[in-house]
Protein backbone atom coordinates (compact mmCIF):
# COMPACT_ATOMS: atom_id res chain seq x y z
CA UNK A 1 0.00 0.00 0.00
CA UNK A 2 2.85 2.41 0.82
CA UNK A 3 4.35 1.71 -2.58
CA UNK A 4 1.03 2.42 -4.20
CA UNK A 5 0.64 5.76 -2.41
CA UNK A 6 4.17 6.84 -3.37
CA UNK A 7 3.47 5.94 -6.98
CA UNK A 8 0.22 7.87 -6.91
CA UNK A 9 1.99 10.91 -5.47
CA UNK A 10 4.69 10.72 -8.16
CA UNK A 11 1.92 10.79 -10.74
CA UNK A 12 0.80 14.12 -9.26
CA UNK A 13 3.77 15.83 -10.94
CA UNK A 14 2.90 15.25 -14.61
CA UNK A 15 -0.81 15.70 -13.87
CA UNK A 16 -0.25 19.06 -12.20
CA UNK A 17 2.08 20.19 -15.00
CA UNK A 18 -0.57 19.33 -17.56
CA UNK A 19 -3.35 20.99 -15.57
CA UNK A 20 -1.35 24.16 -15.01
CA UNK A 21 -0.31 24.39 -18.66
CA UNK A 22 -3.87 23.97 -19.89
CA UNK A 23 -5.36 26.36 -17.36
CA UNK A 24 -2.64 28.96 -18.03
CA UNK A 25 -3.41 28.67 -21.73
CA UNK A 26 -7.15 29.01 -21.19
CA UNK A 27 -6.71 32.08 -18.99
CA UNK A 28 -4.76 33.69 -21.85
CA UNK A 29 -7.23 32.65 -24.55
CA UNK A 30 -9.47 35.74 -24.54
CA UNK A 31 -8.05 38.53 -26.71
CA UNK A 32 -5.84 41.01 -24.90
CA UNK A 33 -4.29 40.74 -21.46
CA UNK A 34 -4.34 42.50 -18.15
CA UNK A 35 -2.72 45.60 -19.72
CA UNK A 36 -5.63 45.92 -22.16
CA UNK A 37 -7.89 46.08 -19.15
CA UNK A 38 -5.56 48.61 -17.54
CA UNK A 39 -5.43 50.73 -20.71
CA UNK A 40 -9.21 50.81 -20.84
CA UNK A 41 -9.31 51.85 -17.19
CA UNK A 42 -6.71 54.58 -17.67
CA UNK A 43 -8.54 55.75 -20.78
CA UNK A 44 -11.72 56.03 -18.82
CA UNK A 45 -10.01 57.98 -16.08
CA UNK A 46 -8.30 60.22 -18.66
CA UNK A 47 -4.69 59.62 -17.64
CA UNK A 48 -3.73 57.17 -20.38
CA UNK A 49 0.03 57.02 -20.76
CA UNK A 50 1.37 54.70 -23.51
CA UNK A 51 4.88 54.82 -22.03
CA UNK A 52 3.79 53.47 -18.67
CA UNK A 53 1.90 50.67 -20.40
CA UNK A 54 4.88 49.78 -22.57
CA UNK A 55 7.14 49.72 -19.51
CA UNK A 56 4.78 47.44 -17.66
CA UNK A 57 4.46 45.23 -20.74
CA UNK A 58 8.19 44.72 -20.76
CA UNK A 59 8.48 44.29 -17.02
CA UNK A 60 5.83 41.58 -16.75
CA UNK A 61 6.95 39.82 -19.92
CA UNK A 62 3.70 40.32 -21.81
CA UNK A 63 5.68 40.83 -25.02
CA UNK A 64 7.13 37.33 -24.82
CA UNK A 65 5.54 34.22 -26.30
CA UNK A 66 3.04 32.34 -24.15
CA UNK A 67 5.27 29.36 -23.50
CA UNK A 68 8.06 31.56 -22.16
CA UNK A 69 5.66 33.30 -19.79
CA UNK A 70 4.42 29.94 -18.56
CA UNK A 71 7.96 28.66 -18.13
CA UNK A 72 9.02 31.67 -16.08
CA UNK A 73 5.95 31.41 -13.86
CA UNK A 74 6.46 27.69 -13.26
CA UNK A 75 10.16 28.12 -12.59
CA UNK A 76 9.56 30.86 -10.05
CA UNK A 77 6.93 28.76 -8.34
CA UNK A 78 9.00 25.58 -8.16
CA UNK A 79 12.34 27.23 -7.36
CA UNK A 80 11.27 30.01 -5.01
CA UNK A 81 7.66 29.22 -4.08
CA UNK A 82 6.85 32.50 -5.81
CA UNK A 83 3.35 32.37 -7.27
CA UNK A 84 3.76 35.55 -9.25
CA UNK A 85 2.30 38.98 -8.94
CA UNK A 86 -1.32 40.04 -8.91
CA UNK A 87 -1.67 43.00 -11.27
CA UNK A 88 -5.02 43.99 -9.97
CA UNK A 89 -4.17 43.91 -6.28
CA UNK A 90 -0.57 45.02 -6.82
CA UNK A 91 0.82 42.51 -4.31
CA UNK A 92 2.46 39.10 -4.67
CA UNK A 93 -0.15 36.36 -5.15
CA UNK A 94 1.15 34.31 -2.24
CA UNK A 95 0.49 37.09 0.26
CA UNK A 96 -2.98 37.54 -1.13
CA UNK A 97 -4.53 34.09 -1.32
CA UNK A 98 -3.33 32.48 1.90
CA UNK A 99 -6.11 33.71 4.12
CA UNK A 100 -8.75 33.35 1.43
CA UNK A 101 -7.76 29.74 0.85
CA UNK A 102 -7.64 28.99 4.57
CA UNK A 103 -11.13 30.41 5.10
CA UNK A 104 -12.39 28.51 2.09
CA UNK A 105 -10.99 25.27 3.48
CA UNK A 106 -12.59 25.97 6.88
CA UNK A 107 -16.01 26.78 5.43
CA UNK A 108 -15.88 23.93 2.94
CA UNK A 109 -14.77 21.32 5.44
CA UNK A 110 -17.38 22.48 7.97
CA UNK A 111 -20.06 22.29 5.28
CA UNK A 112 -19.00 18.80 4.22
CA UNK A 113 -18.97 17.49 7.77
CA UNK A 114 -22.29 19.13 8.67
CA UNK A 115 -23.86 17.73 5.51
CA UNK A 116 -22.75 14.20 6.32
CA UNK A 117 -23.68 14.37 9.97
CA UNK A 118 -27.18 15.60 9.18
CA UNK A 119 -27.94 13.77 5.95
CA UNK A 120 -26.64 10.26 6.57
CA UNK A 121 -28.78 9.44 9.62
CA UNK A 122 -31.87 10.90 7.93
CA UNK A 123 -31.18 8.87 4.79
CA UNK A 124 -30.68 5.69 6.81
CA UNK A 125 -33.85 6.23 8.82
CA UNK A 126 -35.82 6.95 5.64
CA UNK A 127 -34.63 3.68 4.14
CA UNK A 128 -35.39 1.63 7.23
CA UNK A 129 -38.90 3.09 7.49
CA UNK A 130 -39.74 3.76 3.85
CA UNK A 131 -43.07 5.44 3.07
CA UNK A 132 -43.47 6.48 6.70
CA UNK A 133 -44.46 10.01 7.68
CA UNK A 134 -40.82 10.79 8.50
CA UNK A 135 -39.71 9.50 5.11
CA UNK A 136 -42.26 11.67 3.31
CA UNK A 137 -41.22 14.77 5.26
CA UNK A 138 -37.54 14.08 4.59
CA UNK A 139 -38.33 13.53 0.92
CA UNK A 140 -40.23 16.82 0.61
CA UNK A 141 -37.47 18.76 2.38
CA UNK A 142 -34.95 16.94 0.23
CA UNK A 143 -36.57 17.84 -3.07
CA UNK A 144 -37.27 21.45 -2.07
CA UNK A 145 -33.70 21.79 -0.81
CA UNK A 146 -32.29 20.34 -3.98
CA UNK A 147 -34.50 22.47 -6.24
CA UNK A 148 -33.86 25.80 -4.52
CA UNK A 149 -30.82 27.60 -5.97
CA UNK A 150 -28.26 28.33 -3.25
CA UNK A 151 -28.08 32.07 -3.94
CA UNK A 152 -31.86 32.34 -3.65
CA UNK A 153 -31.80 30.55 -0.32
CA UNK A 154 -29.02 32.92 0.74
CA UNK A 155 -31.09 35.97 -0.20
CA UNK A 156 -34.17 34.64 1.57
CA UNK A 157 -32.26 33.84 4.75
CA UNK A 158 -30.49 37.21 4.74
CA UNK A 159 -33.79 39.01 4.32
CA UNK A 160 -35.37 36.90 7.05
CA UNK A 161 -32.47 37.51 9.45
CA UNK A 162 -32.56 41.22 8.76
CA UNK A 163 -36.31 41.31 9.20
CA UNK A 164 -36.23 39.34 12.44
CA UNK A 165 -33.00 40.38 14.16
CA UNK A 166 -32.41 43.59 12.29
CA UNK A 167 -28.84 42.44 11.66
CA UNK A 168 -26.75 42.02 8.57
CA UNK A 169 -25.65 38.42 8.66
CA UNK A 170 -23.56 38.38 5.51
CA UNK A 171 -19.81 37.95 5.55
CA UNK A 172 -17.75 35.74 7.81
CA UNK A 173 -16.74 38.41 10.33
CA UNK A 174 -18.29 41.30 12.18
CA UNK A 175 -16.96 44.61 10.86
CA UNK A 176 -14.71 45.15 13.89
CA UNK A 177 -12.93 41.86 13.27
CA UNK A 178 -12.77 41.87 9.48
CA UNK A 179 -9.30 43.38 9.30
CA UNK A 180 -8.16 42.61 12.82
CA UNK A 181 -5.31 40.20 13.44
CA UNK A 182 -6.25 36.64 14.48
CA UNK A 183 -7.30 36.18 18.09
CA UNK A 184 -9.68 33.95 20.05
CA UNK A 185 -12.34 36.58 19.80
CA UNK A 186 -11.99 36.60 16.04
CA UNK A 187 -12.29 32.81 15.87
CA UNK A 188 -15.45 32.99 18.00
CA UNK A 189 -16.77 35.68 15.71
CA UNK A 190 -16.06 33.44 12.71
CA UNK A 191 -17.90 30.51 14.27
CA UNK A 192 -20.92 32.69 15.06
CA UNK A 193 -21.05 33.81 11.43
CA UNK A 194 -20.73 30.31 10.00
CA UNK A 195 -24.31 29.15 10.36
CA UNK A 196 -25.65 31.02 7.37
CA UNK A 197 -23.05 29.82 4.85
CA UNK A 198 -23.38 26.32 6.33
CA UNK A 199 -27.12 26.24 5.74
CA UNK A 200 -26.88 27.80 2.32
CA UNK A 201 -23.98 25.72 1.06
CA UNK A 202 -25.05 22.52 2.79
CA UNK A 203 -28.76 22.31 2.02
CA UNK A 204 -28.67 21.09 -1.56
CA UNK A 205 -25.77 18.73 -0.84
CA UNK A 206 -27.56 17.32 2.19
CA UNK A 207 -30.73 16.94 0.15
CA UNK A 208 -29.12 14.82 -2.54
CA UNK A 209 -27.12 12.91 0.06
CA UNK A 210 -30.35 11.95 1.86
CA UNK A 211 -31.84 10.66 -1.39
CA UNK A 212 -28.73 8.71 -2.34
CA UNK A 213 -28.24 7.21 1.10
CA UNK A 214 -31.90 6.19 1.22
CA UNK A 215 -31.62 4.47 -2.16
CA UNK A 216 -28.33 2.75 -1.30
CA UNK A 217 -29.53 1.43 2.04
CA UNK A 218 -32.85 0.30 0.56
CA UNK A 219 -30.91 -1.68 -2.05
CA UNK A 220 -28.66 -3.27 0.54
CA UNK A 221 -31.53 -4.13 2.90
CA UNK A 222 -32.82 -6.57 0.26
CA UNK A 223 -29.56 -8.53 0.21
CA UNK A 224 -29.47 -12.04 1.72
CA UNK A 225 -26.62 -11.17 4.09
CA UNK A 226 -28.98 -8.85 5.98
CA UNK A 227 -31.39 -11.69 6.56
CA UNK A 228 -28.48 -13.91 7.55
CA UNK A 229 -27.48 -11.27 10.11
CA UNK A 230 -31.01 -11.27 11.51
CA UNK A 231 -30.85 -15.05 11.71
CA UNK A 232 -27.74 -14.61 13.88
CA UNK A 233 -29.96 -12.98 16.46
CA UNK A 234 -28.49 -9.48 16.27
CA UNK A 235 -30.73 -6.58 17.32
CA UNK A 236 -32.29 -4.82 14.35
CA UNK A 237 -30.36 -1.54 14.73
CA UNK A 238 -27.11 -3.46 14.89
CA UNK A 239 -28.00 -5.47 11.81
CA UNK A 240 -28.65 -2.24 9.91
CA UNK A 241 -25.61 -0.28 11.05
CA UNK A 242 -23.20 -3.16 10.80
CA UNK A 243 -24.07 -4.47 7.37
CA UNK A 244 -26.17 -2.46 4.88
CA UNK A 245 -25.10 0.98 6.08
CA UNK A 246 -21.47 -0.02 5.99
CA UNK A 247 -21.76 -1.18 2.40
CA UNK A 248 -23.94 1.78 1.41
CA UNK A 249 -21.25 4.23 2.53
CA UNK A 250 -18.83 3.22 -0.22
CA UNK A 251 -20.25 5.41 -2.98
CA UNK A 252 -19.91 8.45 -0.71
CA UNK A 253 -16.30 7.83 0.15
CA UNK A 254 -15.53 7.71 -3.54
CA UNK A 255 -17.08 11.15 -4.03
CA UNK A 256 -15.04 12.96 -1.37
CA UNK A 257 -12.30 13.73 -3.90
CA UNK A 258 -14.76 15.06 -6.43
CA UNK A 259 -16.75 17.14 -3.98
CA UNK A 260 -13.79 19.31 -3.03
CA UNK A 261 -13.48 21.30 -6.30
CA UNK A 262 -17.26 21.31 -6.55
CA UNK A 263 -17.60 23.01 -3.20
CA UNK A 264 -14.88 25.51 -4.15
CA UNK A 265 -16.38 26.54 -7.43
CA UNK A 266 -20.02 25.79 -6.71
CA UNK A 267 -19.83 28.24 -3.85
CA UNK A 268 -18.94 31.20 -6.06
CA UNK A 269 -22.45 32.60 -6.48
CA UNK A 270 -23.29 32.02 -2.85
CA UNK A 271 -20.04 33.54 -1.68
CA UNK A 272 -20.70 36.66 -3.77
CA UNK A 273 -24.27 36.99 -2.50
CA UNK A 274 -23.24 36.39 1.10
CA UNK A 275 -20.12 38.53 0.74
CA UNK A 276 -17.87 35.74 1.99
CA UNK A 277 -14.11 36.21 1.75
CA UNK A 278 -13.64 32.90 -0.02
CA UNK A 279 -11.61 31.70 -2.96
CA UNK A 280 -14.47 31.46 -5.45
CA UNK A 281 -15.30 35.16 -5.91
CA UNK A 282 -11.64 36.07 -5.98
CA UNK A 283 -10.93 33.54 -8.70
CA UNK A 284 -13.86 34.82 -10.71
CA UNK A 285 -12.65 38.40 -10.43
CA UNK A 286 -9.12 37.40 -11.40
CA UNK A 287 -10.43 35.62 -14.48
CA UNK A 288 -12.56 38.58 -15.58
CA UNK A 289 -9.69 41.05 -15.28
CA UNK A 290 -7.21 38.55 -16.75
CA UNK A 291 -5.09 38.73 -13.63
CA UNK A 292 -3.42 35.60 -14.91
CA UNK A 293 -0.93 34.71 -12.17
CA UNK A 294 -3.56 35.04 -9.49
CA UNK A 295 -6.08 32.97 -11.45
CA UNK A 296 -3.42 30.44 -12.47
CA UNK A 297 -2.25 30.00 -8.88
CA UNK A 298 -5.80 29.44 -7.66
CA UNK A 299 -6.45 26.81 -10.26
CA UNK A 300 -3.11 25.18 -9.54
CA UNK A 301 -3.79 24.95 -5.80
CA UNK A 302 -7.32 23.74 -6.47
CA UNK A 303 -5.88 20.95 -8.63
CA UNK A 304 -3.52 19.93 -5.84
CA UNK A 305 -6.48 19.72 -3.44
CA UNK A 306 -8.47 17.67 -5.92
CA UNK A 307 -5.65 15.19 -6.47
CA UNK A 308 -5.10 14.79 -2.75
CA UNK A 309 -8.86 14.43 -2.22
CA UNK A 310 -9.05 11.68 -4.82
CA UNK A 311 -6.13 9.87 -3.24
CA UNK A 312 -7.79 10.11 0.19
CA UNK A 313 -11.01 8.74 -1.34
CA UNK A 314 -9.17 5.79 -2.79
CA UNK A 315 -7.34 5.03 0.44
CA UNK A 316 -10.58 5.25 2.46
CA UNK A 317 -12.33 2.94 0.01
CA UNK A 318 -9.73 0.22 0.40
CA UNK A 319 -9.94 0.56 4.17
CA UNK A 320 -13.73 0.25 4.25
CA UNK A 321 -14.31 -2.29 1.48
CA UNK A 322 -11.99 -5.30 1.45
CA UNK A 323 -13.18 -6.21 -2.05
CA UNK A 324 -11.24 -3.20 -3.35
CA UNK A 325 -7.48 -3.65 -3.45
CA UNK A 326 -4.63 -1.62 -4.89
CA UNK A 327 -3.22 -2.93 -8.10
CA UNK A 328 0.26 -4.14 -7.27
CA UNK A 329 1.58 -3.99 -10.82
Amino acid sequence: MTGYIIRRILWFVPTLLAVSLVSFAIIQLPPGDYLTVLEAQMGAEGDYNPEVVARLRERFGFDQPFIVQYGKWMWAMLAHGDLGYSFEWRVPVSSLIGEYLALTVVVTAATLIATWVIALPIGIYSAVRPYSLFDYIATIIGFVGKATPNFLLALILMWWAYDTFGADVSGLFSPEYANAPWSWAKVKDLVSHMWLPLIVLGTSGAASLIRQMRANVLDELQKPYVEAARAQGLPEWRVILRYPVRVALNPFLSTIGGSIPELFSGAVTTAIVLNLPMAGPMLLRALVSQDMYLAGSFIFILSVFTLIGTLISDILLTLVDPRIRFEEA
Binding site: P224, E227, A229, R230, Q232, G233, E236
Partner: peptide
Protein backbone atom coordinates in the same frame (compact mmCIF):
# COMPACT_ATOMS: atom_id res chain seq x y z
CA UNK B 1 -37.58 -8.93 15.86
CA UNK B 2 -38.14 -8.64 19.62
CA UNK B 3 -35.74 -9.75 22.31
CA UNK B 4 -37.43 -13.11 22.89
CA UNK B 5 -37.18 -14.30 19.28
CA UNK B 6 -33.64 -12.91 18.97
CA UNK B 7 -32.57 -15.03 21.91
CA UNK B 8 -33.57 -18.10 19.90
CA UNK B 9 -32.10 -16.99 16.57
CA UNK B 10 -28.54 -18.13 16.12
CA UNK B 11 -28.41 -19.55 19.64
CA UNK B 12 -31.09 -22.27 19.71
CA UNK B 13 -32.26 -22.28 16.10
CA UNK B 14 -29.73 -21.48 13.36
CA UNK B 15 -30.06 -21.22 9.63
CA UNK B 16 -27.89 -21.88 6.61
CA UNK B 17 -28.80 -20.12 3.40
CA UNK B 18 -28.77 -20.97 -0.25
CA UNK B 19 -26.23 -18.46 -1.58
CA UNK B 20 -23.20 -18.45 0.73
CA UNK B 21 -21.59 -15.62 -1.24
CA UNK B 22 -24.59 -13.35 -0.87
CA UNK B 23 -25.38 -14.45 2.66
CA UNK B 24 -21.97 -13.65 4.10
CA UNK B 25 -21.15 -10.01 4.69
CA UNK B 26 -18.94 -8.71 1.86
CA UNK B 27 -17.09 -6.33 4.17
CA UNK B 28 -16.32 -8.39 7.27
Amino acid sequence: NGRAIRKLRGAEIAMIFQEPMASLSPVH
